[in-house]
Design a protein around this nucleic acid. Structure first.
Lengths: 290, 290
DNA sequence: TTGCTCCTCACGTCACGTGAGGTGGC
DNA sequence: TTGCTCCTCACGTCACGTGAGGTGGC
């Protein structure tokens, strides 16, 4: 095969591995100019260094093999390729933001861990909060307990009549510290289907980060945990960026017509499962989608 | 199983999938508190939410399952964990730099592609240059041709006597534009083993980026290609950051005692394979190792 | 009882890398 | 002829996701 390159020659010229070339062949991305039917040896023309360069150029900026195949098989114009590169740059910037967020979370995690002492062993969890749609009812009440239960019953009943309940835990937003003795402004939140965004009173929370911890038993613990957590945030230099969330993963409810999954309910308060969550802000917000 | 969580409960509380929990079980990272021998059902204690939080916290900052298993199985102190996080941050920063480089390369690639016209169809290849050790001989010669051949012969012979030849293509650095009519300062470079760094005249190039193209045939093309490439760099706003490289992938050589692989050699100049490479600089340098 | 939860396989992901075991080419 | 190159399987990577097909639990 005079004038043709063997696979190893092209690999060296193109700065790729032989295995990569065999893979590109298999993927029909770069077929050899000639394959010896006897031996299976692949032979490439010198001009194929340019085809290979196109592939490696795009690989160098994170195009996948599939993307390259789709792009190049259509005999693209220069602007079609540069448009694709613009799209790819957007993705690369998203990935940078994700890394930035991880670096921030790493600092937060370090701080939290360093601050964990034997007399303060609560394991705090970094939480990523998803976007969420819920039905909200906000009120200022004299105290916790019965008035809040009433609010939840009313809210759940309203959502139930709309058949809009999403099977997620309901939660309570504290617009005042839970240690405040009276006139607490609270917001009862019932997750609803995304399709119910038009529902009166429906609200949407956008994603973010928080730290949280879960406990079992009656609600007496929340105030104490909140104090521990806010003190740690202070020591660690983190700012609370929103209202305290109390999330009811398992709780008591008398009425059966709420359309709640049975596993969310407990008969005795000793079986309750409650998450205490404090939102925190990172300087850069995560991009949620590519 | 009173008081224990089923896998779905823990998944919801921890914000992970059931599949993830089964995987952590299989990896012996988080075993259920109890497994029903009849049904295989996994049951978890509520305290395991904290163990799960440790895992998800580390996962959130890019620790692998193996790393987490190794770290947590040793009952680490707080500072052992934070040390590991510091290491991980270094890696995350490296990955950010890599993304930055890709973004830069994307701009360069766009510019190169946009600048490709029918009367200027040379496919330029983005090249990543590896660190390389070579034997270098620098001289100012009156013209190309015989004096350069002589330099290569001398250099190859010296390297051959040391048995230090690395099986890579030799190359020539142009410290003047190849279009200069006389008194060209050139540097002949013969790749040697890394172990030969102490060799007299051995030099090391550090990695970087370049653009290059390969051609077949006699050396008459280099000057013209250099002109085309530098003009394109100018139009595109890129700065040449080092001497032109002429890399001899397949070339003529009379003597047999150079210890060169036969496949590097050609009998007729029509069979020569030569790469013309211009180094370019990116604002940020790549980190070569983690 | 029905529907929901859980179970265990088995396979897919992405772009090759790493052998194993065997043959072709100069 | 020897050593180098090349060939084709087959398997591994990483942390699960996606079914298939079947059973347990309230």
């Amino acid at each position: 095969m005079k004038g043709l390159l063997r696979i190893g020659d092209l690999a060296r010229l193109g700065g790729v591995s032989i295995k990569a070339l065999r893979f590109y062949d298999e993927q029909e991305l770069l077929r050899p100019d000639y394959v010896d039917p006897q031996t299976g040896y692949r032979y490439y023309a010198i001009e194929q260094t340019h085809a290979l360069a196109q592939i490696t150029n795009l690989r160098a900026v994170d195009f996948s093999i599939q993307e390259i195949a789709a792009l190049l098989s259509a005999e693209p114009t220069a602007s079609e390729i540069t448009d694709a590169i613009v799209d790819k740059k957007r993705i690369l910037r998203c990935e940078k933001t994700i890394l930035d967020n991880k670096l921030q979370l790493a600092d937060i995690l370090s701080a939290i861990i360093t601050d964990t002492t034997p007399d303060n062993p609560v394991t705090l969890k970094l939480r990523t909060l998803e976007d969420q749609t819920f039905y909200a009812m906000k009120k200022t009440v004299a105290h916790l307990g019965a008035p809040v239960t009433k609010m939840f019953e009313t809210a759940e009943a309203i959502v139930a009549t709309r058949k809009a309940r999403a099977p997620m835990a309901p939660f309570l937003l504290f617009h005042d510290p839970p240690t405040k003795p009276s006139d607490l402004t609270l917001e009862v939140c019932i997750p609803v289907d995304q399709s119910s965004e038009g529902l009166m009173g429906a609200r949407r929370i956008h994603g973010g980060y928080g730290i949280s911890t879960v406990y079992k038993g009656g609600y007496a613990h929340t105030a104490a945990l909140y104090e521990i957590m806010t003190k740690r945030l202070e020591r660690v230099g983190l700012a609370q960026s929103g209202p305290l969330h109390e999330i009811y993963h398992r709780f008591g409810a008398d009425q059966e017509d709420y359309a709640l999954p049975a596993k969310m309910l407990a008969r005795r308060s000793g079986e309750y499962l409650t998450e205490v969550l404090i939102p925190i802000s990172l300087p850069d917000k995560p991009k949620e989608s590519f």
